[in-house]
């Protein structure tokens, strides 16, 4: 066990966990930020995606010991009112089916648009290829990203 101070959604948090604990389980078990999901534990499905200094990081494969002073943003901290352009576009296109993967999809999409405000369709597909949607809402996800790009 070791004490780690991490920056999550603008706040400083201290947690006492094993050094190899993935950020995912610190968020869920310790901080009860439950929007970040567990899907595979091997960075293959993307439901655990968070922003680490703005990058779309898979929190299930990222040990707490490697975070340092990098800033974590989770789906809960993406916007104060749930009105980030990507979130709004997701509602406008009624994207979710079961909804389990969508927080991860939104975190990846918002990281994409922050780096590339006007992505091509090809760039969207490639950027989102690490996020599985078992309900296969991919066409709506990509439509929503195109809408959000216009609003950003």
């Amino acid at each position: 066990m070791a004490l780690f101070t991490i920056h999550v959604n603008g706040e400083s948090k201290q947690v006492d966990v094993d050094a190899d604990t993935p950020i995912l389980w610190v968020l869920r078990d310790n901080l009860r930020l439950l929007g970040t999901k567990y899907g595979c534990g091997i960075a293959h499905c993307g439901v655990c995606t968070i922003h680490l200094d703005g990058d779309a990081v898979r929190s299930c494969a990222y040990p707490i010991s490697a975070v340092g002073d990098k800033k974590i943003v989770t789906i809960e901290g993406l916007s104060e009112e749930g009105d980030h352009p990507v979130q709004k576009a997701w509602l406008e296109h009624d994207v979710p089916q079961c909804g389990y993967c969508q927080a991860g999809q939104i975190m990846t999409a918002s990281s994409l648009l922050a780096q590339n405000p006007n992505p091509t369709d090809e760039e969207i597909r490639r950027a989102m290829n690490g996020n599985l949607c078992r309900c296969a809402t991919y066409t709506r996800i990509n439509r929503a990203i195109r809408t959000a790009a216009k609003d950003m």
Partner: peptide, 24 residues
């Protein structure tokens, strides 16, 4: 890597233990 697909997004400085976790 590029945008949301940077190597370091999954390959952290240290990996987490596991059969098929991304090496760090």
């Amino acid at each position: 890597g590029i945008s949301t697909m940077k190597c370091a997004n999954c390959h952290a400085s240290t990996g987490v233990p596991g059969e098929s976790t991304p090496p760090g």
